[in-house]
Write a protein that binds this DNA or RNA. Structure first.
Lengths: 359, 359
DNA sequence: CTGAAAGCGCTAACAC
DNA sequence: GTGTTAGCGCTTTCAG
C-alpha cells in the first residue's frame, strides 16, 4: 500500500494531523476525490441518484465499490437531526409474548431502514426509567414501550425532545400517546361465549393475579359475556392464583372439586393453568371435554401439543409489534402535532379437543 | 381479526422557551453560554468532572439541570470515532434460547453503557447478511452473532472497519474470532453417563436433524460416553426426527417399540421430544422411569412441570450472552491486534423423576 | 447538474 | 483550570 499525497485543490491546510496518512481515510470525501467530483455530488448519488447524470453516477458508484465505501449513518443522522433508531422497551424479552412483539417490531423497523435497540427491564421500573434516559441520550427517533407501572414521566421528556412514543399492549385512554393493544376484555368474552355455546351451565374462571391488567380484563370480559347471555355475572366461579403455572392449575382443581357441584366448564386465563387443570382433572377421573370443558389463553405452541389439545384464545403478537412500529414511523414526520391513534387487535379463538371431542 | 382505529385528539406541549431567544438551541454550547464558561469546560464536567473546579462544576451542573440538557451521544460518538452500540444477530429471538442470550447480552452491554440493537434473521441468511450491512453503516462497536450457516464474510469487513466480533454458541476453531459457546458434546456425554450410572443396558437416542450442529454434537457426546464406558458406540439405538416436537417424540416411540427388545433408557436431544416420548410410553403401559428412563435437553421451564418431571441437561443461556458481550467489550480497546479467546460453558444435569423415581 | 461552504453537537489537543 | 479551535463524516442550501 503506497501512501499517496492528498492534494486538495481548495487549499485546506489548516488541518495538521493529516500530513502523513496512516489511516485508510475512507469517507465521502475520499470517494469524491477519486471520482473527481465534489462531496455534494457523492452525497447525491447516495441519497438522490435520480438527480445525478448517468455518467457521474456510474463513475462515483464504481469508486464506491472499489473503495468498499460504506456511508456512516451516524454522521448522516447527526447532520439531518433525526436518527434511524427506535427503542423497544419491554418488561421481559424472555416472555414469549414480547419476543414475538419484538420480532414484529424489528421487521417493521427494518423495512423502513430503522434499527431497534432492545431494552429489557426485567420487570424493574428503575431499570425501565434508566433505559428511557439512555434512549434520550441516543436521540432515538422513537420508542415502543410496554410500561411496567404507570406511564413513565420519561416518555414526555422523550417526546419533548422530538422522539415519537407508542404504547404497546397498553391502551392509553387518558394519556395522549398512540398505542397498539389487544383487547383482553374481548378475549375473556369470546372465551365464555364459546363455553356458553357449548351448553355449559356452571362455568369457572381460573385466573392469575388480578393486579395484572390482562387478568382483570379477561375476567371483566368473562363476566360481561355472562351478563349478555342473560345470566348473573356472579354465576362465575372464580379461583385466583398468584402464579400462572401448570402447578397452580393443578391446585386450582382442588378448590373446584371442593364445591357443592363441580363446574362443567373452566376458562383459564393462560395455557399453563389450563394444562394443569386438565391434568388434575384427568387424575381424578374426570374426562375432558366429556365431563368438563377446559380452555386456555395465549395459544402457545404447546397448546396444540398438550395431551388433550387445548382450545385457546390467541393474540396477534407479531402484528402487535409490527403495527406499533408502523404507527410510530407514521407519526414521526408529523412531529409535535401528530394525531395519536389507538389500534386495537382482536384476540381469536382456536377450538381444539379440550372443549369439543369432535372439533 | 378486525382492527379498528380510534383517533385521539393530540395535545402537544412543548418545552418552555429557552431563555428569551427564538431558537430552542439546547446543546453544550447553550449550557456553556448560560453558565458563563466555554464549551470545553462543559465537555469536561460531562466526561471528566474531576478536572473541573468545584465551583464551576456546581454552576454548570445547575444550568444543565435547569435546561434539561441531555448530551447527544450520537454526536459524541461521531467525534470520538467509536460508537456505543453493539449488534446482536440471532436466527430467531422467539426461540427461548436466544431470548435468554439476548437478555444476558443486553444486561452486560448496559452495564458498560452500551446499547444493543436486535437483529432477528428469521433463519434467513440473506436477512442476516443484510443486517451485517446495516450494522456496518451504523459503525457499531461490535457484533455478537450466532451465524446461520458458514461464518459470513460480512464479519471480516465489519472487523476491518474496526468493529469487534464474537461468535455466540458457535466455536470458531478455524476462524480467528472470539467466541462463547456451550459444550454440546459434553452435554450428550453427561446425559449418557447419567443413564449408564443408573444401570441402563439398552440406550436409545431420540435426535433431531443431525444437520443442526447441536444435534450432531450431542450425538457425538453420547457415543463417546458409551465408548468410554467400554461399550461399543454402535450399541446406541438411534431415531432421528426432522422436527423436535412433542409429536415427533410420540412417533419416535413407535420405532422404539418395533425393535427386538425395547430400550430401558432414552436420551432425547430436547425436552419436547422427551415429553412426547414419555407420553407415548405411558400410553402403551410402560412406566417412566420404572420400565424406561427418559431424559431431555435444554431444561426448559416446562421440564419441571411435565406430568412426570423431566431429567434434563440445562445450558447457561443468560451467561452465554453475558460473557460473549464482556468478551467483545474487553477486546474492543485492543483493536486489530486483540487476541481472541474462546470460552466454553459446561451444560449441567438436573435429575428429576423421569430417570429416578426417588430423586 | 455540480461545486463550494456551512455546519449538526460534541471532544480533544493545545494554549493561556 | 479553562478557553480556543479544528474537525468527526455527512447533508444541504445556494450559486454557477
Amino acid at each position: 500500500m503506497s501512501r499517496n499525497e492528498v492534494e486538495m485543490p481548495g487549499e485546506r491546510k489548516r488541518h495538521a494531523p493529516r500530513g502523513s496518512n496512516a489511516k485508510p481515510l475512507t469517507g465521502i470525501r475520499e470517494v469524491a476525490r477519486l471520482a473527481g467530483v465534489s462531496v455534494g455530488t457523492v452525497s447525491n448519488v447516495l441519497n438522490r441518484p435520480d438527480k445525478v447524470s448517468e455518467a457521474t453516477l456510474a463513475r462515483v458508484e464504481q469508486v464506491i465499490e472499489r473503495l468498499d465505501f460504506v456511508p456512516n449513518r451516524g454522521a448522516a443522522d447527526l447532520r439531518t437531526g433525526r436518527s434511524r433508531m427506535i427503542g423497544l422497551v419491554v418488561p421481559d424479552i424472555t416472555n414469549p409474548f414480547f419476543a414475538d412483539v419484538a420480532r414484529g417490531a424489528v421487521d417493521a423497523a427494518g423495512q423502513q431502514g430503522y434499527v431497534v435497540v432492545l431494552c429489557n427491564c426485567d420487570q424493574d421500573i428503575d431499570k425501565q426509567n434508566g433505559y428511557l434516559d439512555v434512549l434520550e441520550e441516543q436521540r432515538v427517533a422513537g420508542v415502543l414501550i410496554n410500561p411496567i407501572g404507570a406511564i413513565p414521566s420519561g416518555l414526555s421528556r422523550l417526546r419533548d425532545r422530538g422522539s415519537g412514543v407508542v404504547l404497546v399492549d397498553r391502551s392509553a385512554k387518558l394519556s395522549d400517546y398512540s398505542s397498539a393493544a389487544v383487547d383482553d376484555v374481548r378475549g375473556g368474552q369470546v372465551a365464555i361465549e364459546h363455553l356458553l355455546g357449548l351448553g355449559a351451565k356452571r362455568i369457572a374462571l381460573v385466573n392469575g393475579p388480578t393486579s395484572l391488567r390482562q387478568c382483570s380484563d379477561r375476567r371483566r370480559g368473562a363476566r360481561r359475556a355472562l351478563s349478555a347471555a342473560g345470566r348473573s355475572a356472579d354465576d362465575l366461579i372464580e379461583v385466583v392464583n398468584s402464579t400462572m403455572t401448570i402447578h397452580a392449575g393443578v391446585s386450582a382443581v382442588d378448590q373446584l372439586l371442593a364445591l357443592d357441584s363441580t363446574p362443567d366448564a373452566v376458562f383459564c386465563t393462560n395455557d399453563l393453568l389450563a394444562i394443569g387443570v386438565t391434568r388434575a382433572l384427568a387424575q381424578v377421573g374426570r374426562d375432558v371435554p366429556g365431563d368438563v370443558a377446559v380452555m386456555g389463553y395465549d395459544d402457545v405452541d404447546l397448546a396444540a401439543e398438550a395431551p388433550v389439545p387445548l382450545t385457546s384464545i390467541g393474540q396477534p403478537k407479531y402484528e402487535l409489534g409490527h403495527v406499533a412500529t408502523e404507527l410510530l414511523l407514521k407519526e414521526l414526520p408529523m412531529g409535535a402535532d401528530a394525531k395519536h391513534e389507538r389500534v386495537v387487535f382482536q384476540p381469536h379463538l382456536t377450538v381444539r379437543n379440550s372443549t369439543t371431542a369432535t372439533p
